[in-house]
Design a protein around this nucleic acid. Structure first.
Length: 853
RNA sequence: GCGCGGGUGGUGGAAUGGCAGACACGCUAGGCUCAGGACCUAGUGGGCGCAAGCUCGUGGGAGUUCAAAUCUCCCCCCGCGCACCA
């Protein structure tokens, strides 16, 4: 395909910006800082599609806008370069993951540069670079030092396709978030980070994030899942073993008719050992363990379970109730043991009916009396305590407090807060990641690698095919090491860290990307952080965004940062769909950027993707509308060329009030010139509002189109009428309808307003208009709201709420004046003939409604 | 099941209590042109009408209001998230 001539303009200015360091951020400046951050991509090497373009262009618009508004902007880019796709591609194509990744980074960088995105490339970072992951390892060591990194054997999520364990946050509806395979459970020893220790802070500080979408905050809140309740210690009847439970309903404690323990619970084996129930229980446990997350969870699923033959004693009333093993109890939540109160819990009710267990009502509603034998559903609402010993008659909300207090007093339990959030499993049994900097010594146990020995380099020559053991395990040179503590023979940890470790702190590294002595430079980080505007996909609502907040709070505890939160404002952009599906390389349904860029130049597809819909909304791609943007930009180009060079007057001349003097119209003969000036102010106002106060880029572009149409109309007059451009010829009383000062004023502002959306063209037009590049060093235009307002307004007139006429009135006309105008209007005379006016509703400058009877 | 977001012309969308459909695509007619998928002008929600105009109209139904796409209630549909967490 032949290239559009504008491609030369694209390249010319891309080169100019690079050579002049136009978008290079300065670490110290008198100007206000603005940190604009895009979630950095995984360098997959696929061609950029319009979905990508949309993401990166949002940040680009913001960067250019803020720069023009006088900010010192940091807009960096880097690569989330560790991870499975590299390894899988490498295995498939026989290329080393490092080489594959490096090549993809080069490709993607070139594509981003060809799009003219305003990154400060001098700060580029890559998480697979040893100079970066050295510090990821350092963070791990600091966490270990503070007891936040620990090893634990437990049932973890295993993705059979990725051949590794994954974190809870990476399991979406029972499947792996990356490959969508059904996740299974495996009993493994793994490294965990104690994110739960930060649960309250992560929850409480969500209230500080008022510039985040409510949706994301809610998702995090639900994920953390704080719930207040009580701990109640039951005892096994025969052995006296403690069986603590967590409940949010201590008020129903007297209604316990059975107990349930999770199949994975460590006590299970002990409880049934040598008993007649042993065989059946162990068979049940085994079966439960083979079930995937997806098979096991789901509220609709029928409750199964088997009796253990054991009994638990309720501390408050001495009742001994049967203990069951059932897979609806989650081992990792609470104590893994649940008290069964069928009368007041849906799940317990279903289980009790299935097992033929008694239902004991302990909360009675006011009017009717429930009967446990006949009730058809659990009673979940508030009521009055019954069958609850000394607590009978209390409203259950008070009962809750009273019973909890009673438990505490007796030493049988007390108040307890529990979280749904679990600790973060970070071990991955794969090659392409940062090695966990730990050593295991037969004598000393787990020993951290000394800071001075970092980074623990990922060896290059390793058989990285996945299998039963971690790839690094196969590298003798890597594994065998002297114990840092005793010097004896020891083994390195062979699991690598999940890539969310890498991405939890990259935004800090941008603030001092070449810092060698520390994880980041405190001073520059203090200047740039927190991120002023973070932009990325909603899919990270509870993965990356939660982890990054956790790391930030950890940095706060290390005294490295002062602020509580890393991202002041968050914007989640919508997907660009094709055929109702997300654009993706694997399914081949993509609209690649290259073709459109070659056909139109890069500003046209860039502006189009902003024009097509508000940026937070999902949008179905369609080629059709792009012509409209191309036409518009060509029209602007035509206007600029038609009036360039606009050397009179100088751009800084205050023509704001022209053609007004003291706010009055000097010469009523030139309504068009006046309208152009008014429209200029109005457009500056509209575009400023739509881009600075919100992300309404689509309506900003619309108003720029309208402005262009008005200017084209004004410009056409010059051609249509036989007039000399008198001002230029030295005439001191220029014909206001053809005054080049008016066009100069309007067009230069149009170019400035267009600049964030069509940066290459705007830069070219700025120069042609006689100004000095870069247009991004020029100031964003200001406006005067008074000059933007029309002085004659059209006011719709309604009769009983229906639009019947329109009157023209001076802006700010009084209610009486409007009344007079309405009564004098021919249409309204006809409408009101023979009717009685019951009421006037007058909204000055907006509307008149005459209520008649 | 629970939570959130959404449903407006042939299409993308605009309007968040005050003229529904800005802006753009597409389409129709005319102009210009050797020609054009280029450019210019006009028109373009449905129905009735030569027209002026009338009337209906923002998923469906009810309500509040002088006035509702917008607020309230009920229902339907689509998308996303969470889902046995005691």
């Amino acid at each position: 395909m032949e290239e559009h001539p504008w491609r030369d303009i694209d390249r010319k200015w891309q080169q100019f910006w690079e050579e002049h360091g136009t978008f290079r951020a300065v670490d110290r400046s008198d100007r206000k800082k603005f940190y604009a951050l895009m979630m950095f991509p995984y360098p997959s090497g696929s061609a950029l599609h319009m979905g990508h373009v949309r993401n990166y262009v949002i940040g680009d618009v913001l960067t250019r806008l803020r720069k023009m508004q006088g900010h010192n902007v940091l807009h960096p880019m880097g690569w989330d370069a560790f991870g499975l796709p590299a390894e899988n591609a490498a295995i498939k194509a026989g290329v080393h993951p490092a080489d594959w990744t490096r090549k993809n980074i080069a490709t993607m960088k070139r594509q981003l540069q060809e799009l003219g995105i305003s990154y400060d490339w001098s700060r580029e970072i890559s998480t697979c670079d040893p100079s970066y992951y050295k510090w990821t390892q350092w963070i791990f060591l600091k966490m270990y030092e503070r007891g936040l990194a620990y090893r634990k054997k437990s049932f973890v999520n295993w993705c059979p396709s990725c051949q590794t364990t994954i974190a809870n946050e990476e399991v979406h509806e029972g499947t792996c978030w990356r490959c969508h395979s059904v996740v299974v459970r495996r009993d493994l020893e793994q490294w965990f980070l104690k994110i739960t220790q930060y649960a309250d802070r992560l929850l409480d500080d969500l209230t500080l994030l008022d510039k985040w979408p409510e949706r994301v905050r809610t998702m995090q809140e639900n994920w953390i899942g704080r719930s207040e309740g009580a701990r109640v210690v039951f005892r096994e009847r025969d052995s006296g073993a403690e069986m603590p439970v967590f409940t949010t309903r201590p008020d129903t404690l007297f209604g316990v008719t059975f107990m349930v323990i999770a199949p994975e619970h460590p006590m299970v084996g002990e409880l049934v050992k040598g008993r007649p129930e042993e065989r059946e229980v162990l068979a049940y446990v085994e079966k439960a363990l083979t079930l995937s997350e997806i098979e096991r969870t789901g509220a609709d699923r029928e409750k199964t379970g088997v009796p253990t033959g054991r009994f638990a004693v309720n501390p408050v009333n001495g009742d001994a109730v049967p203990l069951f093993v059932a897979d609806y109890v989650v081992a990792e939540y609470g104590s893994g043991i649940v008290m069964g109160v069928p009368a007041h819990d849906d799940r317990d009710f279903a289980f009790a009916r299935k097992q033929g267990l008694p239902v004991k009502v302990v909360i009675q509603p006011g009017a009717t009396r429930l009967d446990g034998a006949t009730m058809e559903a659990a009673f979940l609402e508030d009521g009055v305590q019954a069958n609850s010993g000394a607590f009978d008659g209390l409203p259950n909300r008070d009962g809750k407090k009273a019973i909890t207090a009673h438990l505490e007093k007796k030493g049988w339990g007390g108040p307890l807060v529990t979280y749904r959030l679990r600790d973060w499993g970070i071990s991955r049994q794969r090659y392409w990641g940062a090695p966990i900097p730990m050593v295991t010594c037969a004598a000393c146990g787990h020993v951290p690698v000394p800071e001075a020995d970092l980074p623990v380099l990922l060896p290059r020559d390793v058989d990285y095919s996945p299998g039963a053991i971690s790839p690094l395990e196969k590298s003798k040179e890597f594994v065998e090491v002297a114990c840092p503590k005793c010097g004896g023979p020891a083994r390195r940890e062979t699991d690598t860290m999940g890539t969310f470790m890498d991405s939890s702190w990259y935004f800090y590294r941008y603030t001092s990307p070449r810092e060698e002595k520390a994880v980041f430079n405190r001073e520059t980080a203090g200047y740039w952080m927190p991120v002023d505007q973070y932009i990325g996909g909603i899919e990270h609502a509870v993965m990356h965004l939660l982890y990054a907040r956790f790391f930030h709070k950890f940095f706060q505890d290390l005294g490295l940062v002062d602020t509580p939160e890393p991202f002041t404002a968050l914007f989640t952009q919508g997907l660009v769909l094709k055929g109702g599906e997300m654009m993706s390389k694997s399914t081949g349904n993509i609209v690649s950027a290259d073709g459109l860029v070659a056909k139109y130049g890069c500003d046209v597809p860039r502006a189009y993707v902003l024009f097509i819909a508000p940026p937070d909304k999902e949008v179905e791609w369609q080629d059709a509308g792009i012509e409209g943007i191309a036409r518009w930009l060509h029209r602007v180009g035509g206007l600029v060329d038609g009036w360039a060079p606009m050397d009179l007057p100088p751009s800084d001349m205050d023509v704001r009030k022209y053609p007004f003097v003291n706010g009055e119209v000097v010469d009523p003969r030139h309504p068009h010139a006046k309208e152009v000036v008014r429209m200029t102010h109005a457009t500056v106002q509209k575009v400023t509002m739509d881009t600075s106060a919100s992300f309404h880029f689509n309506t900003a572009i619309s108003s720029l189109m309208e402005f262009t149409n008005v200017l084209a109309g004004y410009s056409a007059r010059r051609e249509a009428l036989p007039v000399v451009r008198s001002y230029q010829s030295g005439d001191s009383t220029p014909d206001p309808e053809h005054d080049p000062r008016v066009m100069s004023f309007a067009l230069k502002r149009l170019i400035l307003l267009v600049a964030p959306f069509a940066p290459h063209l705007a830069e070219e037009w700025w120069k042609r208009s006689g100004e000095k590049p870069s247009v991004f060093d020029a100031s964003w235009p200001t406006f005067d709201p008074a000059a933007a307002a029309e002085d004659v307004v059209e006011i719709p007139v309604q009769v009983n709420g229906k639009h019947r006429a329109t009157i023209r009135a001076a802006r700010g006309a009084s209610e009486d004046a409007l009344k007079t105008l309405v009564l004098g209007d021919e249409k309204m005379k006809a409408q009101m003939a023979g009717k009685t006016v019951r009421r006037w509703v007058i909204v000055p400058d907006r509307l008149v409604n005459v209520v008649v009877g």
